[in-house]
C-alpha cells in the first residue's frame, strides 16, 4: 500500500516543481513580456520581409522570364542589351543568396553593410526580405512559365505590347497560381527569423533565451517558444489550405 502514497507524493511534488518553474520563468519579474515582445518582433520582421521579398521576387522573376521567353526573338539594340544585363545581375543575386546561409547574410548586413545603423529591426527586414526574394523569384518565375503561351499570344494579337500583356494577362494568372507557394514561403520565413538574435534582435527565440539565462532553467522557456512557433505554423498552414481550396473552387 505504500507505493500508492509514494506515487501521490511524487506527483504532487512534481506538480509543485512545475508550478514553481512556471512562476519563476513567466510570472516573476513579468518575464512573460520577453515572449510577447519577442513574438511581436518575429511577426513584424516576417511580415515586412515577406512584402519586400515578394516585391523583389516579382521583379527578378519578370526579368528572368522575359529573358527566357524573348531573347531569341529580340532584335539587337539597347533593349536587348539591358535585358541581358538585367538577367545577368538577377542570376548573380539568385546564386549568391541561395548559395549562402541566411545567418551569414544577416550578419554581413548588420556588421558590415549597415555597421553604422542601430536600427537592427530594419536591417533584419532587409536581410530576410532580400533572402526571401530569391526564393520568391523562382516560385514566381515558374508561375509565369506555366501560363499557356496561347494567353500571351492572345494578348499580343489584341494589340497589347509586351509589358501590358504581362501586366493585365500573365501576372494576375501567375500570381493566383503561386499564391499557395508564396504563403508557404511566409511560413518558412517565420521560422528562419529565429536567427535574428545573432544581430541582437529580441525576437521570440531570443526572448526565450533571455528568460533562460536569467532563471538558469531551460525547460519552460524553450518549450514555450517551440509551442508558440508550432501554433503559428499550424495556424498559417490551415489558412493556406483554406486559401488553396477557395482558389481551386472558383473559376474552375
Amino acid at each position: 500500500m505504500g507505493w500508492f502514497t509514494q506515487l501521490q507524493a511524487n506527483l504532487a511534488g512534481w506538480f509543485a516543481d512545475l508550478k514553481a518553474e512556471f512562476v519563476l520563468n513567466f510570472i516573476e519579474e513579468d518575464r512573460w513580456r520577453f515572449l510577447v515582445t519577442g513574438l511581436g518582433n518575429t511577426l513584424r520582421i516576417t511580415f515586412f520581409a515577406v512584402l519586400l521579398g515578394i516585391a523583389l521576387g516579382v521583379v527578378v522573376a519578370i526579368v528572368r522570364a522575359s529573358y527566357d521567353k524573348t531573347i531569341q526573338e529580340m532584335r539587337p539594340g539597347p533593349g536587348r542589351f539591358l535585358l541581358k544585363l538585367g538577367n545577368f545581375v538577377c542570376k548573380i543575386y539568385l546564386t549568391v543568396i541561395r548559395g549562402t546561409p541566411v545567418v551569414v547574410q544577416l550578419m554581413i548586413m548588420y556588421y558590415i553593410i549597415f555597421a553604422t545603423s542601430r536600427n537592427s529591426l530594419m536591417v533584419a527586414v532587409l536581410a530576410f526580405g532580400i533572402n526571401s526574394g530569391a526564393y520568391v523569384a523562382e516560385i514566381f518565375r515558374s508561375g509565369i512559365m506555366s501560363i499557356d503561351p496561347g494567353q500571351f499570344e492572345a494578348g499580343r494579337s489584341l494589340g497589347f505590347n509586351y509589358v501590358q500583356t504581362m501586366r493585365y494577362i500573365i501576372i494576375p494568372q501567375a500570381f493566383k497560381n503561386v499564391l499557395p507557394a508564396l504563403a508557404n514561403e511566409f511560413i518558412v520565413l517565420l521560422k528562419e527569423t529565429s536567427v535574428a538574435g545573432y544581430v541582437t534582435i529580441r525576437d521570440l527565440t531570443m526572448g526565450g533565451d533571455i528568460i533562460r539565462s536569467g532563471t538558469y532553467s531551460a525547460f519552460m522557456p524553450l518549450i514555450a517558444v517551440a509551442l508558440i512557433y508550432l501554433t503559428l505554423v499550424i495556424f498559417f498552414t490551415w489558412l493556406v489550405g483554406k486559401l488553396e481550396r477557395r482558389l481551386r473552387s472558383s473559376e474552375r
Binding site: 496561347g150 499570344e153 492572345a154 499580343r156 494579337s157 494568372q173
Partner: peptide
Amino acid sequence: DPRVDINRHRQKMGMVFQHFNLFPH
C-alpha cells in the same frame, strides 16, 4: 519594317485561335 509599331497594327487584325485563349481570370 522594324521601325513600325506593330502593336498599333495588330489592333486592326483580330485573331481567333484553335484553343480559344480566353483569359480565364
